[in-house]
Simulated scan of single mutants.
Amino acid sequence: MNVKALIRRVNHTLKLHKLFPEHSRILIACSGGPDSMALLHLLQDIAAHRHTKYKLGIAIVDHSIRPESKDEVLWLQNQVDALGLSFYTTTFDVPTLSKDLKLSEETVGRQVRYQWLNEIAHSEGYDYIAVAHHKDDQAESILAHLIRGTGLNGLTGMAVVSHDYDIPVIRPLLDVTKEELLAYLADRKLTYCIDSTNDDIRYQRNRIRHRIIPELESINPNVVDAIARLGCSVSEDLAVISNLTVQAFERLVTIDKNEMRLSRKALRKEPVAIQRRLWQRLMSSIDSDITLTTAHQEQLLDIVNTGEGKTFTIKSIKVTAQCDTIKVYCKH
């Protein structure tokens, strides 16, 4: 295991995205497992590599799913205290919340965890939240989207920098495999906890990890790298398509006080890929919570391709088409 090469690679990811400048304050989401313990120590190594200091804080959520989770929180607190770092913890009853909200434990756990991390980062003055997703997680995420059904957005996987919350969420390890992280921990003689639920194939991600990925690796041993490269390639292509969509919006859409107008004839000349994204942009500019389904998109394409009078309604938005003019407006 070449630890220096690993540190340089993670540092390269951070430099590429202009992340963690001198004296950054970074809140690390840590479960005590191998991935997040590796992230904690790698960030300390990178600070030394850059001849700077970071203010690191460690945050752990007890999801109340496993009886041993309380002991893991205490174990991690002892580790963090020994390093002289700030420590934050909270507890959520995720199984109960999951039943009440009729959502999976995975979904609820992710929602409450990120919301709490953002609140702590805000109140304690951290610049970034760092999470330990790595290349294998990226491959699993892309496969999960593919299995559920996705467009190009789902094939991009997770971004190194995410702005879903007020505080940016950073994934420094997306170019590092799980195997490399375990080798790093072994080389540094670092300890960590093992989450027994990671082997529970009732969870979709675990089925992908323990059954689907190994089967794919029997066909292509480098399938994780291949899927991660696909995600990068799709991201690059989407950036071009997004730029073309912005240009089409500026060229085709007329905005008045209470409505947006565009020409059926002009819209028909655009590639379908641009039309679909243009519709999503139109809807989001009125109501940011609206995400168009495939069925919605097909209805909107039908409005464009026919000369008949048509009306389409989704939540608070109404689309009407008469002759060549399409109008989009809030119906309230």
Rank of each mutant, 00 (worst) to 15 (best):
D256K: 05
K257I: 03
K257P: 09
N258P: 07
N258L: 02
N258D: 05
E259L: 01
E259N: 01
E259Q: 00
M260K: 00
R261F: 01
L262T: 01
L262Q: 00
S263Q: 06
R264F: 01
R264S: 05
K265H: 14
L267Q: 07
L267M: 15
R268C: 08
R268D: 12
K269E: 10
E270Y: 06
E270F: 04
P271H: 06
P271A: 14
P271F: 02
V272K: 15
A273N: 15
A273F: 15
A273Q: 15
Q275C: 04
R276L: 15
R276N: 15
R277V: 03
R277P: 13
L278E: 07
L278N: 05
L282I: 04
M283R: 06
S284T: 14
S285F: 02
S285L: 06
S285I: 10
I286F: 09
I286Q: 13
D287A: 04
D287W: 03
D289Y: 07
I290A: 05
I290N: 06
T291G: 10
T291L: 14
T291N: 13
T291V: 14
L292M: 09
T293E: 09
T293P: 12
T293L: 07
T293W: 11
T293K: 09
T293M: 07
T293G: 05
T294S: 14
T294C: 13
A295L: 12
A295F: 12
A295C: 10
H296F: 04
H296Q: 08
Q297W: 02
Q297Y: 00
Q297R: 05
E298M: 11
E298T: 11
E298D: 11
E298I: 10
Q299G: 04
Q299F: 05
L300T: 00
L301P: 00
D302L: 10
I303R: 00
N305K: 03
N305W: 01
T306H: 06
T306F: 00
T306E: 04
G307S: 07
E308R: 09
E308Q: 10
G309E: 13
K310W: 03
K310Q: 07
K310G: 02
T311N: 11
F312C: 04
T313K: 12
T313G: 08
I314C: 11
I314N: 11
I314E: 13
K315D: 13
K315N: 12
K315Q: 11
S316P: 08
I317R: 06
I317L: 07
V319D: 08
T320G: 03
A321R: 01
A321E: 14
Q322W: 13
C323G: 11
C323D: 14
D324R: 00
D324V: 00
